[in-house]
């Protein structure tokens, strides 16, 4: 299988607080990796390092064959267009309509208007929210904001998607819908994903493989069934 993300000996500290100590990880094309861990265990820091939002203190990150330490400026932006990032809050641009939010990532590509409109419509169809096209973010519910955030992520047809707590703050029914959407995206576009979550049901539905982050290192790795039935009480506690 082809690896799309390779992380070797990744380290990150904030002052004296060592958040990531020695992370080693490989993610295959089309694979969903779910990362569990306590709040403050460095899960979000890990995925922010993968898109260059946070600079690590040590180690190597290779994304789609490119070493992040060597990719800067325009080349980094080109690489970022192949990586989608769904923020916990959705991070929709408040001053823009849903249509403008979705058009924004396409602005550097100078596509004709008809093509842009078609891409916007396809992205909204993927998340089942075509009717929200002219709404402002303030008019959307939490679940809708997440879906529009995902639509904005999908519009560039990324090869990798990083989900930062996609179901946090949502009711169980909407959480399940978002989890099913993550699965549908994986099947339709064959994307590799890292899903940061505390939601056991989301992990059960979406994970091909799981990792548990503890004290800045990978405490356990395996499938959902393997980890949820682990002999280690501490590992099992994440699934209760």
């Amino acid at each position: 299988m082809e690896s799309v993300i390779e992380i070797a000996h990744l380290k990150k500290s904030f002052g004296s607080n060592e958040v990531l100590k020695d992370i080693n990880l490989k993610i295959e094309k089309g694979e969903n990796l779910v990362v569990f861990g306590k709040s403050g265990s460095g899960k979000s820091v890990l995925i922010k390092c993968l898109v260059g939002l946070i600079d690590p203190n040590g180690g190597e990150i290779t994304v789609l064959g490119k070493n992040l330490n060597e990719v800067k400026g325009k080349a980094l932006n080109e690489l970022r267009k192949k990586i989608g990032f769904l923020f916990q809050s959705g991070a929709l641009y408040d001053s823009m309509t849903v249509r403008e939010n979705l058009e924004f990532p396409l602005r550097d590509l100078s596509k004709p208007k008809e093509e842009t409109d078609a891409l916007v419509l396809e992205a909204l169809q993927n998340v089942g929210l075509e009717e929200a096209i002219d709404k402002m973010p303030s008019e959307l519910s939490g679940g809708m904001r997440k879906r529009i955030g995902l639509a904005r992520t999908l519009i560039l047809k990324p090869e990798i998607i990083l989900y930062d707590e996609p179901t946090t703050g949502l009711d169980p029914i909407t959480s399940k819908e978002i989890s099913e959407l993550i699965l549908a995206v994986q099947k339709k576009y064959n994307t590799a994903s890292i899903i940061i979550t505390h939601d056991v049901e989301c992990a059960r539905l979406t994970a091909n493989r799981m990792m548990i982050l503890k004290n800045g290192t990978a405490a356990a790795e395996g499938t959902f069934t393997e980890l949820s039935q682990s002999n280690d009480n501490e590992i099992r506690a994440y699934f209760q």
Binding site: E78, K81, Q88, A91, D94, S95, F104, R107
Partner: peptide, 20 residues
């Protein structure tokens, strides 16, 4: 306005989408 965009991760969202 910019501070609000910063703390709501909207500026980060622009950055990770490869925009400037």
């Amino acid at each position: 306005e910019l501070a609000s965009m910063k703390v709501n991760e909207q500026i980060d969202a622009m950055e990770v989408a490869g925009n400037n």
